[in-house]
Nucleic acid binder design. Structure first.
Length: 878
RNA sequence: GGGCCGAUGGCUUAGGGGUAUAGCGCCACGUUCGCAACGUGGAUGUCGAGGGUUCGAUUCCCUCUCGGUCCA
């Protein structure tokens, strides 16, 4: 290093860990991790300049721009350009593109700096407590490829040295460089970490080898990956007790005042210095905290009144800042993948406020934070209201989920067994952690997770067929060119049922678009798949000979339907985004000939109103007859030009991307087939929507002719449904009429019947027979003019008035005959209604039963009606 | 895609092969100068839809729809 020689740095080995480091300080014997001056900048910064978070970036940026760097905007924190990462975790990730097993680097400028927001959830429990851990932070990315524009080690170290000394005014003897090796992502190189007073400010990695330390070769492309923590740059100039105090802008002071915490720097400075030092010594955070309390001699009262609430406030602010970035960039809190991290963070915010009895207005915190952050990240302004909306929905969801769990837990009458725990978790979403918190169970059984995972043994993945494709050239794709429906092609290879042609107009399965159908040399095509750049056709009958020329026909109607549906997918996607909110992204899609579906990221199920608005927006795009333009771009150029919205369908593993744009409404990287103009689609109709998982909504739809048919069929359906409804209404009216009739007539009939004091009387086909004293009275009817409602009503009234009465109603109902028997209170023991019904029903060829006081039954032998009533008479009157 | 749970008046719900529970709300009347409170009474609940078993299904079985939830 020329710099080290010029400036007089000395290389030494740490007395504790033997690592080599470079210093100007003749006294220094240990590396920064093991020195005594660790974190002495707290309360005593090593520079007279004071830069907060915003200003720190302005200083860094202006320094590098002055030194011929291009300053580029941050990339999204949702890492859509890589399949293996959910969130952007380092600035270098911005420029990494995975192709197969290889990672390649694509730089939009060289050299460059970027203020890259990075999300890391590894040390979540440290956030707010340690003074320097964040769930998201700004990585100052300084990147260079050593060519005619870029530079290598010497220049890099020079720049970083000058940044610290000139721009930040830190004395050069404060700076220590530590030698190390950095490895990751299949490549490695030497690295130089730079520290000031024990705080690592940055790490420059000189990536030049591929492989690992035992087996490596030089990379074709050497890269400088210098990452530095912007929050730390601000902190070292401000010397505040924690980095949180100087990195969040005015919100921190506001919340501290709001909570009424008295921040006494004579307590905070030594406490957080101790925390920082102890963090290097112990792994366990509670140990670190305990030790710091002991060393600084803080009382329990001071901890509870000052430190604990401060930790909570720091956590809340940090977590909200992360949520602002993540939601702005299109991530939604959910129960899957990276979304779960966001849900956890929101729940930590809410439960921290509950625990500390802090009443903050989250919307206000979001506003103040965005007002501050937009100095560096102006794009956050655009999603301000969307962030608030998502956070408020998620907060509400947490509340109702807590209530739900409480309700379920309150119903538990005994300590649940492991099986019960699994049911509770699987069916009701009650986590064992919650049960432990609520003291329903004392410990989570050790077998819980084992049993749970047994239950969800994932089925074996479909084995991928390995086809012998070596040496076959790429297939020429006619569907990207003239796209003929009939063409001749040469058979390059054929085996089993597979045919490979030199060129093809058959679209292969891919990008959610189903393959074409048609025939090759008269044989029907079963499936078409893509293997690298080779298209493989699977056909039904015998395969043609290699070298033959075959004539091919594409099923034009099918292709037409699929194509319309594909463009419709793009249209619905952009319509949904404009109706619902900026968080809407394509999650996945499927396009068949006569129907298609699009899964989008959205927090709730769609309402009918949402669906109508989306459909209207989509049809209005069709009505505007917008040309659909297809262009090919270099990937980097496309990303810079259109942003990461182009990756709706996921990662595109090719260097040149095909950009499909519908005016400026929707621009996506897409390999599918599309109509030339939106008016070709004619009509889009959403047929169904469904929430398929937390945070994902499925929209099923039809377009073109299918849409027209759907509308027609729906019209017919609604007409027949209307008729049905009318009939139901009529039936209902009849029933009500009958009930009304029964209600009116029962008192009248009952009165007449009860007037009979002896002998027999018949009123409206109902006969009352009064027995001699002591015996049961008998009342019956076999008229079909009465129904069950009537008999039940009359029986009850009569038996109440005459507790020695047995009432028996027989009537035909459709093909069957039914019987209802009531037995008065004073007689029901000897003349049980249940027994009578059983006997009668048997005669009628059926069955029945009930209680001694009330029973019903029935049968199918209508002709036995008279026999039945005779039997009843004999049973009752004897 | 798979598993589990659920769907009962406007709302919350009990129940379970044989008259469908209760609370809140609502309406009417009474008490009151009026309100609240109280008292009395009232309501068109096809017990999510369709099929099966049965004399009889809201209940049991099957299919479907919708909702919840968990796992991929």
């Amino acid at each position: 290093m020329n710099l080290f020689e010029d400036q007089g740095f000395e290389r030494r080995s740490c007395k504790t860990c033997n690592r080599y480091f470079w210093t100007l300080d003749a006294e220094r014997e240990k590396c920064p991790d093991h020195s005594d001056d660790t974190y002495s900048f707290i309360g005593d910064p090593p520079t007279s300049k004071r830069f907060d978070y915003t200003q720190s970036w302005k200083e860094v940026e202006s320094f590098f721009v002055k030194n011929n760097h291009t300053s580029i905007n941050r990339y999204p924190v949702v890492c859509r350009w890589r399949d293996d990462l959910y969130f952007t975790i380092a600035s270098i990730v911005d420029f990494q593109r995975v192709m197969g097993s290889k990672v390649i680097f694509e730089f939009p400028a060289n050299p460059l700096v970027v203020p890259q927001t990075c999300l890391r959830f590894k040390d979540l429990e440290n956030v707010g407590v340690t003074g320097r851990h964040f769930s998201s932070f700004c990585m100052i990315g300084q990147h260079s490829i050593p060519n005619e524009n870029g530079y290598w080690k010497d220049e890099c170290v020079n720049l970083d040295f000058n940044l610290l000394t000139q721009q930040f005014g830190i004395a050069k003897k404060e700076i220590t460089f530590v030698e190390d090796v950095w490895e990751g992502g299949g490549s490695f190189g030497s690295s130089l970490e730079y520290f000031v007073r024990g705080l690592e400010l940055g790490n420059a990695v000189f990536t030049e080898f591929q492989g690992d330390l035992s087996n490596y070769k030089t990379l074709d492309q050497r890269i400088i990956d210098m990452g530095a923590g912007l929050e730390r740059f601000a902190w070292i100039t401000m010397g505040t007790p924690t980095a949180y105090d100087c990195c969040f802008g005015p919100i921190t002071q506001k919340l501290i005042q709001n909570a009424g915490i008295d921040t006494d720097s004579s307590i905070l400075v030594p406490y957080f210095t101790e925390i920082a030092k102890n963090l290097e010594l112990y792994e366990d955070l509670s140990h670190v905290r305990k030790n710091a309390i002991k060393t600084t001699g803080l009382s329990d009262e001071q901890i509870n009144r000052i430190i604990t609430p401060l930790e909570g406030i720091y956590l809340i602010i940090d977590h909200i800042r992360t949520l602002i970035f993540a939601i702005s960039d299109g991530a939604l809190p959910s129960n899957v993948g990276g979304g779960y991290n966001l849900r956890i963070m929101l729940r930590r915010i809410v439960s921290t406020m509950d625990r500390l009895k802090l009443k903050f207005d989250l919307n206000e915190i979001i506003d103040i934070q965005i007002d501050y952050l937009k100095n560096t990240y102006p794009e956050l302004e655009k999603t301000r209201e969307d962030v608030k909306e998502i956070i408020s929905i998620e907060t509400g969801r947490y509340d109702s989920s807590k209530q739900r769990m409480q309700k379920i837990v309150s119903k538990l009458d005994k300590e649940p067994k492991v099986e019960d725990l699994i049911t509770l978790y699987e069916s009701d979403g009650v986590t064992p952690e919650y049960l432990k918190e609520m003291k329903v169970i004392s410990e989570i059984p050790s077998t819980f997770y084992a049993k749970l995972s047994d239950l969800h043994q994932s089925k074996k993945q479909k084995e991928q067929v390995n086809l012998p494709l070596e040496g076959i050239p790429d297939t020429e794709l006619l569907f990207y060119g003239d796209d003929p429906r009939e063409f001749d092609a040469e058979v390059l290879k054929s085996f089993e049922n597979f045919v490979i042609l030199d060129k093809t107009a058959f679209y292969a399965r891919g990008g959610g678009q189903e393959p074409d159908k048609g025939d090759i040399g008269g044989q029907e095509i079963m499936d078409i798949t893509k293997h690298g750049n080779i298209i493989v056709h699977e056909i039904k009958g015998d395969v043609p000979k290699e070298g033959d020329t075959v004539s091919c026909t594409v099923d034009a109607k099918r292709r037409d339907g699929i194509t319309k549906n594909h463009t419709s997918t793009h249209i619905i996607n952009t319509s949904a985004r404009s109706v619902l909110g900026s968080w809407v992204w394509q999650h996945s899609a499927f396009k068949e000939e006569d129907h298609a579906r699009l899964d989008i990221t959205h927090h709730s199920a769609l309402t009918n109103d949402d669906v109508k608005k989306i459909e209207d927006a989509a049809n209005s795009i069709i009505g505007k007859s917008i040309p659909v333009k297809i262009e090919n771009f270099d990937r980097g150029t496309a990303e810079q030009k259109y942003g990461f919205r182009i990756y709706q369908g996921g990662v595109v593993p090719v260097k040149s991307v095909r950009i499909v744009s519908i005016g400026d409404l929707d621009i996506e990287a897409c390999g599918g087939t599309h109509v030339a103009n939106t008016s070709d689609i004619e009509q889009i109709k959403i047929t169904k929507t469904k929430r398929i998982q937390d945070g994902v909504v499925r929209i099923e739809f039809v377009s073109g002719d299918s849409a027209k048919e759907f509308v027609k069929k729906k019209q017919q359906d609604s007409e027949s449904k209307e008729k049905e409804e009318k009939m139901k209404e009529e039936e209902k009216g009849k029933r009500i009429e009958q009930r009304q009739l029964a209600k009116e007539r029962i008192p009248v009939i009952a009165k007449s019947l009860l007037e009979c004091k002896q002998g027999t009387i018949t009123v409206d086909d109902i006969t009352m027979k009064l027995a001699a004293s002591g015996k049961a009275n008998f009342c019956y009817s076999t008229s079909d003019n009465y129904d069950d409602v009537f008999h039940i009503g009359l029986g009850e009234v009569l038996c109440k008035a005459d507790p020695k009465l047995v009432y028996c109603g027989l009537f035909e109902q459709g093909e069957k005959i039914r019987v209802i028997v009531y037995s008065g209170e004073n007689i029901s023991k000897e003349k049980s209604a249940g027994e009578i019904v059983k006997s009668i029903s048997q005669i009628l060829g059926g069955a029945g039963g009930g209680s001694p006081k009330f029973a019903q039954g029935g049968g199918i032998n209508k002709s036995k009606k008279e026999d039945a009533i005779k039997n009843a008479k004999s049973m009752i009157i004897e």
